[in-house]
Simulated assay, not measured.
Amino acid sequence: MDTQHALDNTRRIAADAMERASEKVRGLRTGASDYANRGMSSLAGGASTAQRQLGEYSRATTRYVGEHPLKSAVIAAAVGAAVAGIVIALRRHQRSDEI
């Protein structure tokens, strides 16, 4: 009978331990889900803010180009020339590394 009693006690202790572990896992899962939801909300808010700011920049740029078309063309040409110069310099640098 002592063996049976020991087995019953062991089963009860194991069942209690499993129940506590299950509760902890449920709590961790809920916490992880809450963190993920907060993170997604934060990302969505950041994307919305970025989209709104880009719209504002686009409107301001359109307005500036309309008010100063010649100056805008000169700025665009200068930026294009600078980008082309950087690309050419990088290509030359790559070729000199290959040789």
Results as ranks from 00 to 15, higher is better:
Arg11Cys: 05
Gln53Asp: 06
Arg92Thr: 04
Val83Cys: 02
Glu56Val: 07
Ala60Tyr: 00
Gly39Ile: 08
Asp16Ile: 15
Ala82Lys: 04
Ser48Val: 14
Ile86His: 00
Tyr64Pro: 00
Ile99Thr: 11
Ser22Leu: 04
Arg38Tyr: 03
Ile75Gly: 07
Arg95Met: 00
Leu28Ser: 02
Met40Arg: 14
Asp97Thr: 15
Ala15Trp: 00
Ala60Asp: 11
Gly55Tyr: 12
Arg29Val: 03
Val79Gln: 06
Ile99Gln: 13
Ala60Ser: 06
Glu98Ser: 15
His93Phe: 12
Leu43Val: 15
Tyr57Ala: 09
Gly85Ala: 04
Gln53Gly: 03
Asn9Gln: 10
Thr61Met: 07
His5Ile: 11
Ser33Leu: 08
Met18His: 00
Met18Asp: 13
Arg26Glu: 01
Asp8Cys: 12
Glu56Gln: 08
Ala14Thr: 15
Arg92Asp: 15
Lys71Arg: 14
Val25Asn: 02
Ala73Pro: 02
Gln51Cys: 08
Asp16Asn: 09
Gly66His: 01
Ile75Arg: 14
Ile75Val: 09
Arg91Gly: 13
Glu98Lys: 11
Val83Ala: 01
Ala50Gly: 11
Leu28Val: 03
Thr61Ser: 08
Arg92Ala: 15
Ile86Val: 10
Gly80Tyr: 07
Glu23Phe: 04
Gly85Tyr: 13
Asn9His: 02
Ala21Phe: 02
Thr3Leu: 13
Ala44Ile: 09
Arg95Gly: 05
Ala73Leu: 07
Asp16Trp: 03
Leu70Pro: 04
Thr10Ile: 06
Ser41Thr: 02
Leu7Lys: 07
Arg59Ala: 11
Ala78Thr: 04
Gly80Pro: 01
Ala36Leu: 07
Tyr35Arg: 08
Glu19Val: 02
Leu70Asp: 01
Gln94Ser: 11
Thr10Ala: 13
Thr3Trp: 09
Asp16Ala: 12
Val87Trp: 13
Gly46His: 13
Leu70Ile: 15
Gly46Phe: 09
Leu43Ala: 14
Ser22His: 03
Asp2Tyr: 04
Tyr57Trp: 14
Ala89Trp: 10
